[in-house]
Amino acid sequence: MKINFSPERIAVIIFVGAIAAAPFVIQNNYQIFMLTLIGLYTMLTVGLSLVMGYAGQASLGHATFYGLGAYITALLSARMGVPSWAALIAAGVLSALIGYVLGVPIFRLRGHYLAMATLGLNVIFVLIMKNEVAVTGGPSGFTDIPPLSVGGFVFDSDVKLYALVWAATLAVLAHALNIVNSRVGRALRAIHTSEVAAESLGVDANSFKLKVFALGAGYAGIAGGLYAQAIHFISPSSFDILVSIELVTMAAIGGLASIWGSIFGAATVVLLAQFIRDKLAEGLGLTGELEIIVFGFLLAIIMVLLPEGLTTGGLKLFREWRTRAKQ
């Protein structure tokens, strides 16, 4: 058997190796938890990147499905006695299903309207979670969510959670890459370039958009479930519009149409937020506002200067600069 060592494959091997080695190198639990968070946000960003970058559809309410997964997991496992692993699977499946059903009317809209409708969806979701106190715990949140346990093995330590989340993240990444490099991915890119042209070549644009939206919702649902099981506590503010916008920032940094960029975007935002909170803000005697200001400007600046994201856009700029230097 001949093994193909293309540069991409080597990069993947190094990446997976680094993920596996990280908990042995890093002993600090807080740092491990940060890496876990990056994994969760990567899952969310990958889904968003599929919807926005590949299908070219504005989705400014992605946190809805993140929250949906978290609340479904919480309700099923803490209130209804469903085993935690089944609750997690249900979170993924139900979020995808709900995403599909909500997508039917939403994807009749385009452009600005679509952006608005997805934002509205997020607002309504948070309001329901805040107001239905008997079911969701209201604004003060849902407590005592059991950790994931499979056959007596409980994922309760930072390292175990890290392994769990990154296993899920890698599975999501592999799945998304598979989709992108398949007929579906080509169809999505065709829709992005020109919907009319794609349709005239026999691509059912609406059906593809719906499916990819549902898929993104499913990824987000799993991430939400894992988040609930890792933190044991969820509240509506963890899933509001600002979180959706943060996810757009991550996708934008990574380049909207880039699966690998999603990891880069998620990591940049999580680490930058941590750096601002722990180092800068304290030094300046500030709290959360600095983070908001930096990310707001960052999002605007990236969209103005490098709409293709830091990775793709940066490479392009570099190439342009080099050809210009040669001339």
Binding site: G111, G296, L299
Partner: peptide, 21 residues
């Protein structure tokens, strides 16, 4: 149009942060 919406959303978040500050 999507990029431009995102630019104004970014600006809105940054302004909100400045007001909070």
């Amino acid at each position: 149009p999507l990029s431009q919406i995102v630019v104004t959303i970014g600006a809105s978040i940054a302004l909100r942060g400045l007001v909070l500050l």
